[in-house]
Design a protein around this nucleic acid. Structure first.
Lengths: 202, 202, 202, 202
DNA sequence: GATGAATGAGCCTTCATTCAT
DNA sequence: AATGAATGAAGGCTCATTCAT
C-alpha cells in the first residue's frame, strides 16, 4: 500500500537526514572538527546507526558532493530551457555573484576539494561530478552560440567552459578571502557581464 | 658576539626552518593530517622547541600565509617594472595557467581558506594578505590602462581587480576538480587572453 | 499438526543452524572478532532472532562446547566396542595425531578454554564436559587393562586418564605453536605408541 | 656517568612496566577484555604514552611472548648444567606438574595461542619462540641419552622433543579444563615419571 | 635555547543487545 | 516466530601541547 515506507525508502530518508545534519556540522565546524557524535545528535539518531547508512565519515562527504552535483545539474537543466541564455545570465549576474559568495557554503566546498586531493575515493566523486557539470557547461555555451558554434576552432568550447567554471569557482574562493565581497558585487557586475559575453557570445 | 648570530636572528632562521618543513608536510598530508611530530622531524628539531618559536599549530599556517603573501607581492612588484604589462601577461598566459595548476599547492591553499573561514586569527591574516594583493592588482590595472584609467566609472577598477583575482583563484580550484586540467591549457589560453584584455585594456 | 515440526522441534533445528554458523565464524575469525551480525547472516536469520534461541553470545559457545562434548563421548563409545583397544589405538596413531592438528579447530578450542577461565558459566560447562570425558577415558583404560586393572594402586587409573588427556590436548596446542607439525607426525608416531603403551598397557 | 639512566634504558624500563601491567591485566580479564586504559593505569602511565613504547596492543602481547620465551630458555639452560638430567626431572615431577597448573597463567597462554592463529605477526613470534624451545628440548634429550643418542633412528629425537612439549602443554590445558587438577598431582606423578623415562632414557 | 618524555582529551568506529512491528 | 532498525557504551589510538631537565 504505502510505497513511501518501504524499508529501502526509510533508509533513504534516514540517509538524507544524516546528509543534512552532516552538511550543517561541516559548514559550522569544518570536516575534521565535526565529530560523528555531533552529526548523529544533529541528525537525531545514534552514532552507531550512522554506520548502518554510511560506510564511514568519508563516505558522508562523498554523498554530499554527489547530492550537490545533482542539485547543480538540475539547476543547469532548468537554465537550458531558457530561450536566450546569455540575456538571462546577464540579467541575473548580481544574483549569481551573491549566490557564489555564501561564506559557510564556500568553506565547505573548499575543504571538500582539499580533502579530495588526498582521498582517492572522494577524488573520484569530485572529478566525476565536475566532468558532468563541465559537459553541461559546454552544452550551455553551444546553445548560446547557436549555429555559429561550428565555426569555432576545436577546443575553443572546452576552453570557454573551463574558464566559465573557473570564474564562478573563483568567486567562491574570493568570498572566503574577502567576506566583504558582497559589498562589491555592484562593482563587479558590469565587468562580469563583459566576461560572460566573451565566454558565451560569438 | 657575532651580530649575525644574534639570538633573534637565530630564532628567525629556526622559524623559517619550521615554516619550510610545515609547508612541505601540509602539502603532503594536509593541514589536519600533518602532525607536529612530523613537522618537527622534517624541520630537524624537537616538537617541544617548535612551541618556543610559534604559539601553536594554527600560528604556523598563519605565518605560512603571511610569507606566501610577501612572495606574491614581490612577484607583482617585479611585474610592475614591465613596460607593457598586458603584452607580458598575454605572452605568459600558458605559463600562468600552469603555475596555478599545481595540485598539492592548490590543495593547501584551499584548506587554508576553509580553515580561515572558522579561525578568526587566520581569517585576519588571510584577509589582510588579500587586501594587499588586491591593492597591487588595482595598481597593475591602472598602470596597464594608463591615463585612460581616469575615465572609468568609480568602482570599475576594483571590480576588475576582484575578477582578475577570481579568475586565477578559479584556476586553482579547477586544478583540484580536474587534475587533467593541464592537458587543456592550450584550449584555455586563447580564451584567457581575451578575458585578460577585458580586464586590463580600455 | 505435524509432530515433526512442533514449535520446540523447529526451535531445536534453528538452534543447530546457529551453532553451525557460529562454530564456522568462530573458527574463521575467533570468538571475539566474530560478530553476532556475521553469525546471523551465516545462519540465515536475523540477529534479533538469535536472542530468541540463545540468551547471549556466551551462551552460544557454551552450547557449542556441550555439543562437541557429546560428539567426543560418542566417538569414545564407538571405540569401546573394539575388542583390543590398544591395538586399535596403536594402529591409528598417525591419524589421531593428524586429527588433533587442525589449526582452526585447535584455535577455537584454546580460545574457548581461555574464555572459560574467566566466565563461570562457561567454566561449568567445560568442566562438566571434561569430567564426562575423563570418566570415559578411565573406562577405556580399565577395559584395556582387563582384570589386571585391579592390581594397580588407587589413583593410578585416574593419573593415566589425566595424562592421556594431557597428551592429546598437548597435540592441539602444538598444532598452533608449530603449524608445520604435521610434517613431523611420522617422527612422533613411534614415540607416541610407546607412550600409549605406558598409559594403557599393564 | 650513570649508564643505567640512559634514555634508551629508561625507555626499556618503561617497556617492562607496561609488559608487567599488561600481563597482569591480560591474566585478569583476558586479552580482548583488558583495555589499554586499564593497562596504562596499572602501569602508572597515560594511555597515550604506551604508544611511544609499543606500536599497538598486539605488539604488547608479542613482547610478552618474547619475554616469556627468554625466561623459559633461561630455565632450560640452568637445567642443562645438571649432571643427571633425568634424575633431576624425576625428582621434581610433582613440582613441574604444579608449575604448569597455574590457571591464570595458563589462560593467558592459551589465549595468546588462539590469537596467534589469526594474527600473522604474533604467529611469527610464537613460532620462533617455539622453535628455540624445541631445539633446546632436543639438546636436553640428547644430553640425557649420552652417546646412545647416535644409535637412534633419524627423527626420533625430534619426535621425543615434540611429545615432551606436548605433554607439558597438555598439563597447561588440563589446568583450565580441570582446575581441581592439582589435587590429582600425586596420582599423575608416577605415571608421568614413566613417560619421562620413555622420552629421555634409551 | 633545546629536548623528548609524558599527558589526556577526544575521535572514529564496532558490536552485543533490544524492541517495535 | 521473525525482522532489522536502532541504541549507546566502550575501545584502540592519535596528537597538540606541556614541562622537567
Amino acid at each position: 500500500m504505502t510505497a513511501s515506507t518501504t524499508p529501502s525508502d526509510r533508509a533513504l530518508a534516514r540517509r538524507q537526514q544524516v546528509l543534512d545534519a552532516a552538511a550543517e556540522c561541516f559548514r559550522r565546524r569544518g570536516f575534521h572538527a565535526a565529530s560523528m557524535a555531533e552529526i548523529a545528535k544533529t541528525a537525531g539518531m545514534s552514532p552507531g546507526h550512522i554506520y548502518n547508512l554510511f560506510e564511514n565519515k568519508d563516505d558522508i562527504i562523498a554523498a554530499i558532493v554527489e547530492r550537490d552535483c545533482e542539485d547543480v545539474l538540475g539547476r543547469i537543466a532548468a537554465f537550458q530551457q531558457e530561450e536566450d541564455l546569455l540575456q538571462r545570465m546577464l540579467a541575473e549576474t548580481e544574483q549569481a555573484i551573491d549566490e557564489h559568495s555564501q561564506v559557510a557554503e564556500a568553506a565547505l566546498q573548499l575543504e571538500v576539494l582539499a580533502e579530495a586531493s588526498r582521498n582517492p575515493k572522494l577524488a573520484t566523486v569530485v572529478q566525476q561530478s565536475e566532468a558532468l557539470v563541465n559537459r553541461k557547461a559546454q552544452e550551455l555555451i553551444r546553445q548560446s552560440l547557436g549555429e555559429r558554434a561550428d565555426d569555432l576552432p576545436p577546443g575553443e568550447i572546452q576552453g570557454r567552459a573551463l574558464l566559465l567554471g573557473a570564474l564562478f569557482n573563483g568567486l567562491t574562493v574570493l568570498s572566503v578571502r574577502q567576506p566583504a565581497l558582497s559589498q562589491h558585487a555592484p562593482a563587479m557586475a558590469p565587468v562580469m557581464r563583459r566576461m560572460l559575453r566573451v565566454l558565451m557570445a560569438p
